[in-house]
Design a protein around this nucleic acid. Structure first.
Lengths: 222, 222
DNA sequence: TATACCACCACGGTATACCAAGCTTGCTAG
DNA sequence: CTAGCAAGCTTGGTATACCGTGGTGGTATA
C-alpha cells in the first residue's frame, strides 16, 4: 500500500465524486462539512477546492462553494472550442506525427474497442482525443483538450449510451486515424469536425429532451 | 482606500513581481521566505502560489517552488496555440460581432495609440487580443487568450520596443479591425496569422540574439 | 586526505485556534 | 400580531504550532 498525501487523496476523492455525479451539480459545499466528511483538516480540503475551481469543477458561491452546475450554453461553447483546438491539432499531427505514434494510437483504439465496461468506455473517448492531440507536438493543445474533456465528462453519464452509438463513435475515431495514417490533413480535419458535431448533436438533443427528468434528479441545468 | 483581502493582495504582488521580472525567472522561492518578505502568514502565500502554479507563472521544484523559467520552446508553442485560437476566434467574430462592439474595439485601439507609456503599451497588445476574442462570443477562446498573453507577457520586457515596431503592431491591429468591419473573415484570419507570425519572428530573433546577455541578467532560458 | 555517518536545520504538509463578517433566529417593543 | 433589532452561530480567511522528511555540513575514522 503506497502512502498518498492527504492533499492529492482529498482532491482525487472530491473530483471522483463530482465527475461521477454522486455529488450533485449545484450542490452547496462547506469547507468544514467536507473536513468532517472526508476525515481531514481544512488545509488539504481548501487546496483541493482551489484546484478544482481552476478546473471549473467547483465554483465560489457567495461566501461558500458549490459543485459547478451543468450549463447547456457552456457545453455548446466547450464543443465549439474543442472543434477549434482539435481540427488545428489533427492538422498539425498529420504534418508532425511519426508513424509509430499513429500505430500506438490505433492500438489504443483497438484496446478500448475490446473492453466494453462503461467507465472504461467513458475514459476511452477522452483518452483518444487527448492522445490524438499529443501527436500535434503542442502541449497547449493537449492541455486544452484534457481540460475540455474533464468539463464535458459529466455529461456522458446523462447521454444515452446505446450499443450503436458507441460503435459509431469508435468507427469515427478509426476514420480519423485512417486519415492521419494517409497524411490526408483535409480529410482528417473534416472527420474530426464531423465527429464533434455528432457528439454535440447527440448530447444536446438528449439533454434537452430529458431536461425535466434531469432537473428532477437534482441536476441544476441553467 | 479599499480593504483588500490578504489572499488577493499577496497574489497580486507576487504576480506583479514575476511579470515585471523583478523576481527572476528560475528564482527559487520558499513559502516561509515569502511569508516574512511579504509580511503575511503562510496560508495566503500558499493560496497565491497554487493559483500562480495553475497559471504557469510558478512551478514546483523539488520540495519547493520556483518562478517559472522562460522557455524558448514554450514560447514558440504558445504562439502557435494563439494562432489556432485567434484565427478561429476572429472568424467567429466576423459572423457574430455586432457593429457597436467592433467600433468599441476600434476606440480601444485609438486610446492605446495615443498613450505612449511603456507599461500601457505592454497592456495594449494583450487587451486588444483579449477584447478581439470577446467578439467571438465564446468564453473559452477569451480565457485561453488571456492565459496565453499572461504567459507571454514577460517576454515583452526583453523584446526591443522601438517606435516603429510599436507603430507596426498598431497598424496590424487596425488592419484586423478593418477586415472585421468589412466582415471579410478570410482577410481577418490572414491578418491575425500574419500579426502573430511577425510577433513570433521579432520575439524569437531578439531573444536568440541576446541569449548570452539575458542569461547574464539571471534569466534562465532553457 | 577522503569518505562515511550523524546531527541539525529548513522545507512543505497538516491540524487547529482565532477572527471578522454575514445570516438566521428569536425575543421584545410598539 | 408584526416589525425590528440584537445575539449567537456558521462561514471563509488568517495565523501559527507541529510533523516527517530530505538535504547539508561537520566530524570522526579509515
Amino acid at each position: 500500500m503506497v502512502e498518498i498525501s492527504q492533499t492529492v487523496q482529498i482532491y482525487a476523492r472530491l473530483r471522483e465524486g463530482i465527475l461521477s455525479l454522486s455529488m450533485a451539480p449545484g450542490e452547496r459545499l462547506t469547507e468544514r462539512g467536507l473536513e468532517t466528511e472526508l476525515l481531514a483538516s481544512r488545509t488539504p480540503v481548501r487546496a483541493a477546492l482551489m484546484r478544482l475551481e481552476s478546473e471549473g469543477l467547483v465554483q465560489r458561491e457567495g461566501r461558500g462553494w458549490m459543485v459547478a452546475p451543468i450549463d447547456l450554453a457552456e457545453i455548446a461553447h466547450l464543443l465549439e472550442y474543442r472543434e477549434v483546438i482539435e481540427s488545428a491539432g489533427v492538422r498539425l499531427a498529420c504534418e508532425r506525427a511519426v508513424d509509430a505514434d499513429i500505430e500506438a494510437l490505433d492500438e489504443l483504439l483497438a484496446s478500448f474497442d475490446v473492453s466494453q465496461s462503461s467507465e472504461e468506455g467513458l475514459r476511452s473517448g477522452t483518452d483518444f482525443h487527448v492522445e490524438l492531440m499529443r501527436l500535434s507536438q503542442n502541449p497547449f493543445l493537449v492541455t486544452a483538450t484534457e481540460a475540455s474533456m474533464t468539463r464535458l465528462s459529466r455529461t456522458r453519464w446523462l447521454e444515452v449510451q446505446t450499443e450503436q452509438s458507441r460503435a459509431l463513435a469508435v468507427s469515427e475515431h478509426r476514420a480519423i486515424v485512417d486519415a492521419l495514417r494517409r497524411r490526408d490533413a483535409d480529410d482528417a480535419v473534416r472527420r474530426v469536425v464531423a465527429h464533434i458535431h455528432d457528439t454535440r448533436d447527440r448530447l444536446l438533443a438528449t439533454i434537452d429532451a430529458d431536461r425535466r427528468m434531469l432537473r428532477a434528479r437534482g441536476v441544476a441545468i441553467v
